[in-house]
């Protein structure tokens, strides 16, 4: 399962991030770390980006990036 599969209102824990060096660093800096809880806030129309919340930070990312964030324990 990845962040891509999450519906608005659902949240889950990050279990791995599958990204190259540059993107990985950027995600780390935005607060994406293994074991952190991430919540899906909304998804844009027409396969647009997703709006997620991690800790106190709101982040948007494209679906290709969302697919790189693997998650577990969806609630």
């Amino acid at each position: 399962m990845t962040l891509y599969n999450l519906d608005p209102g659902q949240s889950a824990y990050i279990c791995s991030i599958d990204a190259d060096e540059g993107l990985y660093q950027r995600m780390l800096a935005l607060g994406f770390r293994i074991g952190k809880r991430v919540e899906m806030i909304r998804r844009a129309r027409f396969s647009g980006p997703v709006h997620v919340r991690i800790g106190t930070t709101d982040v948007m990312m494209r679906l290709t990036e969302a697919q790189r964030v693997h998650i577990r324990n969806i609630s």
Partner: peptide, 9 residues
Amino acid sequence: EPFILELPP
């Protein structure tokens, strides 16, 4: 290019 951006309050 990956697109990932903060949405500030």
